[in-house]
Design a protein around this nucleic acid. Structure first.
Length: 575
DNA sequence: GCCGTTTTCGGCCCGACTGTTTTCAGTCG
C-alpha cells in the first residue's frame, strides 16, 4: 500500500463519514490528509521509519495510526466497518448533480432506496417529491441526472476543452460592455484533463452576456441563470459556468475561479494570518485594528498584498507553491519558445503518416535546430517496426540528408526500441551503437506485476545504449490505465545511470506525469519533451508537453531539447 | 480529526444559486 492507495482509502472514508452525517470538519480532515499524501514528495516508508509522520501538516495522532494500520495490514478496520453499514449505492448517488450527502441520507431514511435503480423507480412513482425538502423539480432533476450520469461524470482532454472554450471566450469579449473576459479554472491551470469550463467576465451590465452565453450553439440545458452566475450543459455533457463581476472585482474573482481549491485555501489561510479575509470579492480586514488594503486591479497586485510574487496559474495546485513564492524560488518555467528540437518522432518507415523529408521540413518550419527520428523496432510489428536492415538503411538516408544541405535542421538518427519482456532490448548492441540515440519503451506485456515491470524497465535503463525512457507508464488519459510500475525506483535508476526520462507530449499521454516531475527535477533528473509525432501536425504536441512541464515546475535547464544543437550533439556523443 | 506565541478548546474558506421554503438548507465550486 503506497501513498496513493492510502489517499484513496481516506477519500472513501471521508465520503462514508459524510453520508453518515459525521462532523464535516472531520470529513475535511480526511480529505486534506488524502491530498497531502498524494502530493508530498517524501517517501512514506522513510517518514514512518523516522517516526516523523505526525510532523506532516494535517496528519495527527489518529490519522498516523490509521496510516500505519493500512501499511502493516493492508486493511482499514474503520473502512470495513463503514462499508458494512452504508450501502454502496448511496455513494454512487452522490454523482448525481444536486444530490449531496444530506439529500442521499434523506432518500435512504425516508424511502429506503439504496441503489440508483431503486431511486429511479421512486422518482417515477412520485415518491421522492413527497419527502420534506424535496419537490417536483428535484425529482425531475434526479431523473435527468440518472439518465445522463455517464456523460456528466466524464472528464475531457485539454485539447477538446480548449476547442469548445476558445470560440466562447472570443464571443464573450465581443459582447458590448464587456471589459475583461478570461477562461479560468483547470483550463487556465493547464490541467491535462478538464471537468468543466469556467468563464469570468467583467461588465457593468450582466444581462446581455448571460443571454448570449446561455444561447450558445450546442447548449442542451441551462442549469442555472442568475445575476452573477449562469451554468449550461453542452450536448457532450461538458458543463460550463459563466461568472459576471464588476470590473473592480475582476482580479479577485479571476484568482478565485482559477483555483485550485487547495491553492485558494492556502491563500485564504495566508490572508487570515495577516488579519485579512480573502474571497472572490476582495480582501478585507477581519479585525477593526487591521488597515484595509488598497484595492487591486491585477492578480499581481493581489499576490503582492499578501507579500508574494505572482504565481503562474499552472503552479496553483496547493502543492507548496506559496512557500516557493515566499522564498523567492519560483521556477523560471519553460516556454514553447525555449524548445529547439525534438526526439521521438515517427515516419512512414514505421507507423507514421509523413516521410522523413516531410517531417524535417515541418520541424524546420517551426524554427527547430534539430529533429530526432525514432521509429519503432521490429518487435512492434503492429506498428510496422524496423528490423536491422531497414533501420540501417534509414540511418544511411539520414546521414545523406544531413550531408545534402537541403535543410538547416539537423536530423538525429534514433530508434524507439522496444523493451522486451525480460528487460533486454529489441536490437543488438552493435545496432544501437550506430544510432545517435535510443528511446527505450514498453509496448507489450502490460500486465506484468509491478516488481517485474519495474525490474524490466530498470534493466533497460542500465543498458549503455539507451539514452532515454519512453512513456514511463503507458497510460492513455481517460482511456487506458497505466501499467503497474514503481515510478520512484525507475527515477532512482535513471538518476543513477545518467539517463533521461521523456515527458511524452501527446495530450493523451503526458507521461511521465507532471506531479512526479516536481521532485524528480529537483533531484536533477533530465527530461526531453517528446512529441511522439506520427505526422507533421503531431510536432505541435510539443505545446501540450510544455504545459505539463510547466506544471511540473520544469525550467529549460531540466530539458535536453532546450539546449542548442552543438550541446545536444556533445550530450548524445557521450553515450 | 487537526491545530496552536490571542491556543489544549473552539475554531476550521467563502459565497451564489436553486428549490422549497416564508427565512433557509443543501449543493456546488
Amino acid at each position: 500500500m503506497d501513498k496513493a492507495d492510502i489517499a484513496e482509502v481516506f477519500d472513501t472514508l471521508a465520503t462514508l463519514l459524510e453520508l453518515r452525517g459525521d462532523n464535516p470538519f472531520k470529513v475535511r480532515a480526511y480529505q486534506n490528509a488524502a491530498r497531502t499524501l498524494e502530493t508530498m514528495p517524501e517517501d512514506l516508508g522513510t517518514l514512518i521509519a523516522d517516526g516523523r509522520l505526525t510532523e506532516v501538516r494535517g496528519i495527527g495522532k489518529d490519522l498516523a495510526e490509521r496510516i500505519l494500520e493500512i501499511r502493516e495490514t493492508g486493511r482499514c478496520a474503520m473502512l470495513d466497518e463503514l462499508r458494512a453499514s452504508i450501502p454502496a449505492g448511496l455513494i454512487e448517488m452522490l454523482d448525481i448533480p444536486g444530490l449531496g450527502p444530506k439529500k442521499v441520507k434523506a432518500l435512504h431514511a425516508e424511502l429506503g432506496v439504496d441503489t440508483i435503480a431503486g431511486l429511479k423507480k421512486a422518482c417515477e412513482d412520485g415518491r421522492v417529491a413527497e419527502i420534506k425538502g424535496f419537490g417536483a423539480k428535484t425529482q425531475e432533476k434526479i431523473l435527468s441526472g440518472i439518465a445522463n450520469r455517464a456523460a456528466y461524470a466524464k472528464r475531457h482532454l485539454r485539447p477538446a476543452a480548449l476547442a469548445v472554450a476558445m470560440p466562447i471566450l472570443d464571443g464573450l469579449r465581443k459582447v458590448p460592455g464587456v471589459t475583461h473576459a478570461e477562461a479560468a479554472g483547470s483550463l487556465r491551470r493547464r490541467m491535462e484533463t478538464v471537468g468543466d469550463l469556467d468563464f469570468l467576465v467583467a461588465t457593468a451590465e450582466p444581462g446581455p452576456v448571460m443571454d448570449w452565453f446561455c444561447a450558445q450553439p450546442g447548449v442542451r440545458e441551462v442549469t442555472a441563470k442568475g445575476e452573477t452566475k449562469s451554468s449550461v450543459r453542452f450536448e457532450s455533457g461538458l458543463q460550463a459556468d459563466l461568472r459576471v463581476v464588476p470590473a473592480a472585482q475582476f482580479a479577485y474573482a479571476l484568482h478565485h475561479f482559477t483555483g485550485s481549491k487547495e491553492h485558494n485555501v492556502a491563500m485564504r489561510r495566508r490572508a487570515l494570518e495577516r488579519g485579512l479575509s480573502l474571497s472572490e470579492w476582495g480582501l478585507s480586514p477581519v479585525r477593526p485594528e487591521v488597515a484595509a488594503p488598497a484595492p487591486v486591479t491585477s492578480e499581481e497586485g493581489l499576490f503582492a498584498a499578501l507579500g508574494l510574487p505572482w504565481i503562474p496559474p499552472e503552479l496553483r495546485e496547493g502543492m507548496g507553491e506559496l512557500e516557493l513564492a515566499e522564498s523567492g524560488k519560483l521556477p523560471k518555467l519553460v516556454t514553447v519558445k525555449d524548445i529547439r528540437g525534438a526526439f521521438h518522432n515517427h515516419t512512414t518507415a514505421s507507423d507514421g503518416k509523413n516521410t522523413l523529408e516531410e517531417m524535417v521540413a515541418a520541424a524546420e518550419a517551426l524554427g527547430w535546430e534539430y529533429l530526432g527520428i525514432a521509429d519503432h523496432s521490429k518487435s512492434s510489428f503492429q506498428a510496422n517496426g524496423l528490423d536491422e536492415a531497414r533501420l540501417s538503411r534509414q540511418i544511411d538516408d539520414i546521414r545523406k540528408l544531413n550531408a545534402s544541405g537541403r535543410f538547416r535542421c539537423h536530423v538525429f538518427a534514433g530508434s524507439e526500441v522496444d523493451i522486451l519482456k525480460d528487460g533486454s532490448l529489441d536490437f543488438p548492441d552493435e545496432m544501437l551503437a550506430r544510432l545517435d540515440y535510443a528511446v527505450a519503451s514498453v509496448h507489450n506485456a502490460f500486465t506484468l506485476e509491478e516488481d517485474e515491470m519495474t525490474a524490466r524497465i530498470i534493466r533497460a535503463l542500465e543498458h549503455p545504449g539507451v539514452t532515454m525512457l519512453g512513456h514511463l507508464t503507458g497510460r492513455l488519459l481517460l482511456r487506458r490505465e497505466p501499467y503497474r510500475v514503481n515510478a520512484a525506483k525507475v527515477i532512482d535508476a535513471a538518476l543513477a545511470n545518467g539517463k533521461i526520462i521523456e515527458l511524452n507530449a501527446n495530450p493523451l499521454r503526458l507521461d511521465m506525469d507532471w506531479r512526479l516531475w516536481i521532485r524528480a527535477a529537483e533531484r536533477g533528473l533530465l527530461t526531453s519533451i517528446n512529441p511522439d509525432a506520427h505526422d507533421t501536425s503531431g510536432l505541435q504536441f510539443i505545446a501540450a508537453g510544455v504545459d505539463a512541464a510547466r506544471k511540473g515546475r520544469l525550467e529549460p535547464r531540466h530539458i535536453l531539447n532546450c539546449r542548442p544543437l552543438a550541446e545536444v550533439t556533445r550530450y548524445l556523443a557521450r553515450r
